[in-house]
């Protein structure tokens, strides 16, 4: 099976559980005191999808969301974006719209957008009604799901939904670029001048 690398960028206010969602998905682990994303450029997990394997490269904000300081580079080449809010905090849902706008301005045009209402285990102190969030997600053609990173609810489903929305690989697209990454060790020199 062909492995396809898919970059997914996470967005959402500080403290809504972005890192917890990834941590649950990638390591099936939940830590109440997760340190805010130190040291991880991105986390990876591979899941099967039809005839392909999708290797998600999940980029966390590394705290850069705090001052709205996510560089355009953060969004480059993303296949999908997960925008997380906290169902117990209305303001995190309100600012979701700003993240959507930010994504429209900086993200790729064909990006798959998923909205995740996290902390669904705390629904007794819910502030954001499911209906409202769902309607908003529909209005921007985004995937919508409520998740609980703590109880491992709907985390896999979130990424499965994303997988299904990823358009099949366009062979032309695949071939067109002759760009490359700099790697270690560098390619050995085959054609030196002198």
């Amino acid at each position: 099976m062909a492995i396809r690398e898919l970059k997914v960028c996470l967005l959402g206010d500080t403290g809504v559980g972005k890192s917890s969602v990834v941590c649950r998905f990638v390591q099936d682990h939940f830590d109440h005191n997760i340190s805010p994303t130190i040291g991880a450029s991105f986390l990876t997990k591979t899941v099967p999808c039809g005839k392909e394997l999708h290797k998600f490269l999940i980029w966390d904000t590394a705290g850069q969301e705090r001052f709205h300081s996510l560089a355009p580079m953060y969004y480059r080449g993303s296949a999908a974006a997960v925008i997380v809010y906290d169902i117990t905090k209305m303001d995190t849902f309100q600012t979701l719209k700003k993240w959507v706008k930010e994504l429209k301005e900086h993200g790729p045009e064909d990006i798959v957008v998923a909205i995740a209402g996290n902390k669904s285990d705390l629904s007794d102190i819910r502030e954001v009604p499911v209906k409202e969030a769902k309607e908003y997600a529909e209005s921007i053609s985004a995937i919508f799901i409520e998740t609980s990173a703590r109880n491992a609810v709907n985390i896999e489903e979130l990424f499965q939904k994303i997988s299904r929305q990823i358009p099949p690989l366009d062979p032309q697209e695949y071939e067109k670029t002759d760009a490359f990454k700099l790697t270690r060790p560098p390619p050995t020199s085959s054609k030196r001048c002198c």
């Binding site: 206010d13 500080t14 390591q27 005191n33």
Partner: peptide
Amino acid sequence: YDGDGAPPEESLFKEH
């Protein structure tokens, strides 16, 4: 992940 704790932080936009 070392479980090194950090207090919950303020919302970006709110702060902004």
